[in-house]
Design a protein around this nucleic acid. Structure first.
Lengths: 416, 416
DNA sequence: CAGCTTAAATTTATCAGGTTAATAATTGGC
DNA sequence: GCCAATTATTAACCTGATAAATTTAAGCTG
């Protein structure tokens, strides 16, 4: 099994990672950040420059003497990758260029009650349309990262749970989508992908952190020393099913008092619906498969100062805070990042409440003060992470020449 | 910073590990197990044979044709290491030879109410006595692994908690012991050391497992792909302070419902003491700093069929089972090993009850059936792990020649 | 028992991926 | 226009592995 050229250990993989996350760097900076010598950087960059994956982009005139540093950047048009996050109530598709820039994105409804076959077909149609609309040459799309909740069998590209319905269990999601799209598809866990996205596309203050992902359900991810923790079979950090002290609500997993059952968007909406007048005031409809829309209504009410809405969110955040304490204590962390569509509006309430819980209960708090941050790309972090995963793991060669028509168009644009 | 010769990645480190855990292997088997070529094994072994760390030990006549495989083993007398596990209520000291064999061991009372200074002095005295008694040449002792509960600062070799008393916080344990013993001292977490000991000296069915360590307190360790999970600062897997659903007992950590407070030996003994008649029948004295002795009395009563004792242990095991479910779900594991002095007698009750909890609640149970095992060295696993850690991490050179007197004695013994 | 087969162990040449040290290139300042 | 400073490249080499050929040590066979 030959390793992909850009695997993490190699010099090539490391400089590509750095250029993708920092944008533009000189050889000297690359040498400093990787710990490699300047000679190695020269030798590593040459084939990348020859292949057209990396380009020189001006010089750095910060330093006043000597030869100026020549800046390097990834050629964004060398390759593209697609990331798809799909869930019962939301779907996000993003297209990234080789430099990690967002070329296009789409937000769609979730799987609702539909089966995997229909869902995959719809995803393929939307993805094809998005690629066409954004004028991305099909031959330069490296692959697609598909992101769902766990537990999953990543090798076989299927879910190992009957959620959202029994027909999803062991349905060959990755293969089906790969067939419809004509592209390789990598399946990934949503929370791990979001952690991955934060690591390489966000600006986390450290390369060791935990992540709480909330969409329709709640998941977790952990990154230690820049490496995603995967465990035995990549189904790690199922924080949504930690049984919380004081919890009683029964959960789909068969247990009770799970984080997801107590604190997930569904639980928050259900609690709002218990009070008819409140639900009406907040505009909470209770439509099945529209849970996140209702959740966002509650979050927006909180933003305009509604104390009842604040109470609902605070209660949920307190539960997640307890789960975060367990996460931080077991994995020895000091930083927790919040990502997922549920945090796009309500992020700050959760951040503050979770931070307070950690401040009180995290064991390592004397060593370093716990931090909680809302991802700057909360809604798209998982899809971005999935696309980045494709860019990082699939073997990268010189991009294929484009068909003549497109070539000439580009050439014309390039000539003043 | 030069890497120690036996670090895990290198061929040298890997063959030493294999020889230590398997005892005796041919070059062909070493090549197969490491994935290295026969040529590399030859080249790796030569300096080890020259240095006297490895010796040829007969041939393997299993195969009937061709040149027989020559067997290799570590020379047990090349080096030695000490492992010390210390706790409020128990102390264990072991001396291992270079092959990982147990040369000597001692079980002593714990720190009780004494301060770190007096404790370190006592440990040094006992260790010196043990080394003298077992005729281990002092010049061949590589170092000492000191094992305590966390949180710790491994670099500085000190505790970051005021347990068991305020004078322990940031007392330079490792340096003090190193001074008294005249040997390098490595500080380690008890549960991680036990996990390490199980991995290399036990016979775990897999190289990915979680470990619950119970002595005076409760700790956790995780090994993934043969590597101990360390987290940000090696204070990972504090399973003793996971807040459990239904728990109310206040804990020394400031929280309530923690595994340790609900299920630790102290809690079990306290519950026994609540019933005067029961305590008397079981012989539970309630003497402070003798908690484990009382706990063992309850465990022995269970073994002779006492249902009240069984009830006490079952209740504790149920709590730990809940913590184990969280451990297994967050770290994505299917195997849990029980180690620590508290499991020497009571192990089986805990094993069965924890297995039942995992069977019901572990998320990955459909993927692979969860297993729970009691360590075959429950009482000494941590001390053994600490000594192995020393053997594995400190740089290993050719052992120094012994003083003439000892040499001649040995020579005399060798002559018939 | 010489010669053949089999398998283990070793030697030799080579490679991959990095290093160090020397050299070339490019600029600002005097 | 030359020098000092700094970046980038080249060349020699080092480390830790591999593949292929060779040597060694058996058992089998006629």
């Amino acid at each position: 099994m030959p390793r992909p050229a850009a695997s993490r250990g190699s010099a090539t993989g490391r400089v590509l990672d750095l250029l993708r996350s920092r944008g533009t760097l000189s050889r000297v900076e690359l040498a400093e950040r990787t710990g490699l010598t300047a000679a190695t950087i020269t030798n590593t960059m040459r084939p990348l420059l020859d292949a057209g994956l990396v380009r020189e982009a001006g010089v750095d005139r910060q330093h006043d003497r000597g030869q100026p540093r020549r800046l390097l950047r990834l050629d964004p048009e060398a390759w593209y990758a697609v990331g798809i996050q799909v869930d019962r109530t939301t779907t996000t598709i993003v297209v990234l260029d080789f430099a990690g820039g967002r070329v296009a994105s789409a937000a769609l409804p979730g799987t609702a009650g539909r089966g995997p076959h229909a869902t995959v077909r719809t995803l393929a149609e939307h993805t094809t349309a998005l690629l066409d609309r954004s004028l991305v040459p099909r031959g330069r799309v490296l692959g697609t990262g598909l992101v769902t909740h766990g537990p999953q069998d990543l090798e076989r590209g299927m879910l190992l749970t009957a959620q959202p319905g029994p027909d999803w269990l062991e349905y060959p999601l990755a293969d089906a989508l790969a067939g419809d799209l004509g592209l390789p598809v990598l399946l990934e866990n949503d929370a791990s992908a979001a952690a991955f996205g934060e690591l390489w596309a966000g600006s986390p203050p450290t390369d060791t952190f935990g992540l709480v992902y909330m969409a329709s359900g709640i998941g977790g991810g952990v990154v230690v020393d820049g490496e995603v923790y995967r465990g035995r079979a990549s189904n790690a950090v199922e924080i949504g099913h930690v049984s919380l002290n004081g919890g009683r609500t029964p959960c789909v997993c068969g247990g009770s008092g799970c984080t997801q059952a107590e604190a997930g968007p569904e639980a928050v909406v259900a609690r709002a619906l218990e009070d008819r007048a409140l639900a009406e005031r907040l505009g909470v409809a209770g439509t099945p498969d529209r849970t996140l829309a209702d959740f966002h209504r509650i979050a927006r009410a909180w933003r305009t100062g509604d104390t009842a809405a604040a109470g609902l969110l605070e209660a949920s955040a307190a539960w997640i805070g307890q789960a975060a304490v367990t996460l931080v204590n077991l994995f020895d962390l000091d930083t927790v990042i919040l990502a997922g569509p549920a945090f796009t509006v309500a992020g700050p309430v959760y951040r503050d409440r979770i931070a307070a819980e950690l401040e009180r209960h995290a064991l390592g708090r004397s060593l370093s003060r716990p931090r909680v941050l809302v991802s700057s790309n909360a809604g798209t972090a998982a899809a971005i992470g999935a696309a980045l995963h494709v860019l990082r793991t699939l073997p990268v060669e010189a991009p294929p020449a484009l068909p003549a028509t497109t070539e000439s168009t580009l050439t014309l644009q390039g000539e003043p």
